[in-house]
Every structure is written in structure tokens, then in C-alpha cells.
Design a protein around this nucleic acid. Structure first.
Lengths: 191, 191
DNA sequence: CTAGATTGCCTAATCCAGTTAGGCAAGCGC
DNA sequence: GCGCTTGCCTAACTGGATTAGGCAATCTAG
């Protein structure tokens, strides 16, 4: 019985979990499935992760980091609408290319974990986008929330297939939406 | 051993499941928990539901119906911004009062089930709202998707607690958002 | 090169949730 | 009161999450 050492580490397990999530869905990532994919018995995973919840949290945190890195890179050197479109496109592309990881970013984290996560970077980037528009508090906070709502809402509905049975291409709606959103932010507050 | 007949039916089981979802979360609704709540052994539920997936699907469908009924009632006799605000408020209130049921409405349904669900009524109501604005295709479809994205995105983020650690009250952001959305829909397409 | 320490991965076992099969009795119609 | 229907039960199976403990593959020292 030649026993082969795959050489797992926590990082590799989490990475494999993220890939698995993209293939079969984040909520179907389970120790059993992940072990199968890693070519290892289920119990062996527990040397690297504490339990299922720990695994999911780690995948979520790594996805948040990854998305934040991508967004930061795309936004570098851009401002105003350019920055807005760059950020939104990165989020949407990420969700389309890595649906499981994107789903992971929506995992409900406890307060401490969330505070130490890359979620803070995301909100800072939203703030940064709005620096290109002429907004003062409290409008700026309202706008941060609106931005988050539209981007997340659109991506969720598109991923759920809510748009797939209508005629205009979703890409058209996406650019239309960002155009309108940009105009909305540029215009003075309504009277 | 006096055996008591609770008198379950599929409808009552689903109703109890919806209430349980609001209390402990939709994804924690499970035959075991639901049986406990109904005062019945787990196996007894299977006379009324096929399995866990069937239970979840039924809860989702009933929530979609319930929300559609509420929305239709709130929108009756209203048009334009009044209709928009009425519809959006109903969705938000429903999500706050019945978080588990709202989560259920986001359950991924297979094509046949979705087609026979109240989801169609929801999209028709969104179309109805837009009749109060001067939009032609393809702008109208874009606007339907934008409406859905904002409402769903905002509610999701608010439910996830994403807004709970900032200062302006979420109610202010909500009315601000609907004001801006109304203005966006009223204004001519950007040059 | 080899002995010992480390530790990655295994087997074995436990617990618990989802699910099925079959039995009993509570309430129905007569 | 008699039988039929059927709501609910007990008993049993399956499969996944998790833990404990053992063995062997690799690393390090000398």
C-alpha cells in the first residue's frame, strides 16, 4: 500500500475549496467533496481546517482579499466615471468567472472576523470612487450604499438567471445602468 | 401512551416552516427542526412533504405569493412615484418582518417551477410601475432590471448588516435612494 | 547514512440529520 | 359498533461531519 503524501497545507486546502466552489457552488463545498477533490480521505482535512464553518470562512476571506486586490489594481490611476466603471466591471467579471467565490463573499461573518477582513478595503474603494463626484455628507454615505446596492443587486440577479429570459443583452443593461448611475451622481441633489 | 393527532397538512407544515425560517433563518429550516416545532416526530413530516428540497421550494413559492399579494394591494390605485415607493416599501418591510421568508424568495428554482410561480407577477408589477414614466424599449427593460437590482440589492445588504455600522439612518438612505431613482427615471436619457 | 522526531495521512468509531418501510390507532362513514 | 382511511409512530438505513489514535513518509542531526 504505497501511501502518497499530497503535501496539503491550509492554504492549498482553501484554494482547492475556492475552485471547488466555482465548480459546484459554494454551499455544496463540504469536507467530503473537498477531500475527494484533494485525493485524500475526509478526516485528513481536519489537520488543516477546524471544521466546515472554518473552511467556509477561510474561503470567504480569501475571496474578499482576491476581489479587493483586483479592484484596487483596476482602479489605480482612474477617477470619476472611469473609476466607477472599472470597479463595477471587476466585481461583475469576478462574479461571472468565479461564481462560487463571489457567493462566498456574501457569507455572513461575525463582527470580529468581518472587521479584520478585506471588507473594509471594499468600502474604502467605494468612498474613493465618490471623491470624483461633488458629494458631501450625508449624501456621500447614501451614495456609498446606493453603489453597493446596485452592484451587488445586479450581480446577484444576473447570477440567479433573472435576466436570462429577456431580450436585451445584459451587457447593454449593465452599461446603461452605469451611465445612469454616473449621471445621477453628477447631478445636483433634487430640489 | 395517549397519542395526539396534531392534524397536519402540507399547507400547515409549509406555514410552520415559513415561521420557523423567520425565527432561525431559512437555511436552518430542516425536517428535524420543523418536526420539533410541530410537536411531531421527524419521519411524520414525510407524509406531507417529499423531502427537504421540496419543503424549501414550497416555502419559497408561498413567500413569493404572499409578497406578490402584499405588493399588489399596496400598488392598487397608485401610479408614478407613489407606486414605486409603495412597491419598494412593501418589499423592504416584508424582508424586515419576515427575513426567513424573504431569503426563501431568493431560492434558485428550476425553470418549470419558476415559470409557474408568482415571480411572473413580480416582473409584471415592475413593468406596471414604469408605465408611470415615459420610457420606451429597450429603456423599459433596462429600467425593470435596475429597479429589481436596487431593491433587492439594498434589502440584501441591509439584512446582512452592511449598513448597520454607519451613521446616517438606513431609512434616510432608503428615501434618498427612491427619490434619486424616481428622478433618474423621469429625466430624459443622457445625451 | 541512519536514528529519531515530526507530522501528513490513514483507519476506526461516534454522532446526528435526512429518508424509507411498515405498524398501530384515532377518527371518519356506515 | 365495524371497517377504512390515514396521521403519526417506531425501527432501521444511509451518508456526512467530526474525533481519537496509529503508521509511515519525510526531515534533521549526528
Amino acid at each position: 500500500m504505497t501511501r502518497v503524501r499530497v503535501g496539503l497545507t491550509t492554504e492549498r486546502v482553501v484554494r482547492a475549496g475556492a475552485e471547488l466552489a466555482d465548480e459546484i457552488g459554494f454551499d455544496r463545498v463540504t469536507p467530503t467533496e473537498l477531500a475527494r477533490r484533494c485525493g485524500v480521505k475526509t478526516a485528513s482535512l481536519y489537520a488543516h481546517i477546524k471544521n466546515l464553518q472554518d473552511l467556509r470562512t477561510r474561503i470567504a476571506l480569501s475571496a474578499l482579499e482576491e476581489l479587493a486586490d483586483l479592484a484596487a489594481a483596476a482602479m489605480a490611476g482612474r477617477a470619476g466615471k472611469d473609476a466607477l466603471v472599472a470597479f463595477a466591471d471587476v466585481c461583475r467579471d469576478y462574479a461571472r468567472q468565479h461564481p462560487g467565490r463571489y457567493a462566498a463573499t456574501q457569507l455572513r461573518l461575525d463582527a470580529d472576523t468581518a472587521a479584520a477582513s478585506a471588507a473594509l478595503r471594499h468600502s474604502l474603494m467605494l468612498r474613493a470612487i465618490l471623491r470624483g463626484y461633488d458629494l458631501t455628507e450625508p449624501d456621500q454615505t447614501h451614495a456609498v450604499r446606493l453603489l453597493g446596492s446596485i452592484i451587488h443587486g445586479y450581480i446577484s440577479l444576473e447570477a440567479a438567471g433573472s435576466f436570462s429570459h429577456s431580450t436585451p443583452a445584459t451587457q447593454d443593461t449593465w452599461t446603461w445602468t452605469l451611465d445612469r448611475l454616473d449621471a445621477l451622481l453628477r447631478n445636483r441633489p433634487t430640489p
